[in-house]
Design a protein around this nucleic acid. Sequence first.
DNA 1: ATATTATATGAGCAAGTATTCAAATGTTAA
DNA 2: TTAACATTTGAATACTTGCTCATATAATAT
Lengths: 125, 125
Amino acid sequence: MIKENIVPNTCEETCSQTVIHKDIIQKVSEHMSDETNLDNMAELFKMFGDRTRIRLLHALYQSEMCVCDLAYLLGMTQSAISHQLRLLKQAKLVKNRKEGKVVYYSLADRHVMQIFVQAFDHVQE
Amino acid sequence: MIKENIVPNTCEETCSQTVIHKDIIQKVSEHMSDETNLDNMAELFKMFGDRTRIRLLHALYQSEMCVCDLAYLLGMTQSAISHQLRLLKQAKLVKNRKEGKVVYYSLADRHVMQIFVQAFDHVQE
DNA sequence: ATATTATATGAGCAAGTATTCAAATGTTAA
DNA sequence: TTAACATTTGAATACTTGCTCATATAATAT
């Protein structure tokens, strides 16, 4: 169905890149939504794209937990966990509350976990 | 609602980590699903967690395209695009077909794009 | 055959990042 | 006050990764 677009049209002068399908590029360019949205998405996915962080999110999906319990559960140092929790908090994926010496972390937004659950379904296909 | 679990229970001998909430850890451990699923999810999200790759996926969501058109559209070298398309193909997110010298890439799986769309909604909130 | 073109690929580099280690902060207990 | 403890933080290190550059491959055209 894209057959009729194959009309070689080589070498735009404005760009070192050869362009074959001017019409498709034109059409797709129009639909290229705000690049900052895509950048924000990349940042969001970057947070999910790490073994330690995804295990943290998965654990917190079950229950609010404090730092040292998370460290024990994941078999990692408390420092490493704390660093990652900081990143997750900056990304607004988790929130925390303090009770005495202990800091409890929980998911900031159930809505975000829909993405998690959907991806979970996918990798199980 | 988790108040009654705060029963300090310090220093498991088996681990250098202090454990405060044994019962929560026990409960969460049971629900810690297969770690390989989480690893696969991290790998999947890693593919989405890059500006170039997410722009490629977004472009291919509009239309099948060849390498040089994608390079032109994103304003990047053909080599850089080709490297990233290889990663996306390894992750089974895109597929390609060859027609003469030209290689056309397209999304491998519409289902995966649900994750994309959901994240897109989220960053727009 | 030779040249041109579209794409792929390997090596190298620069930038980013996850973890460790040591030290700092803040809270509770003695 | 001092000691113990949960957590945070900064610097250093090891590892990963995205891009460039040069070259290789494969198809077409001359």
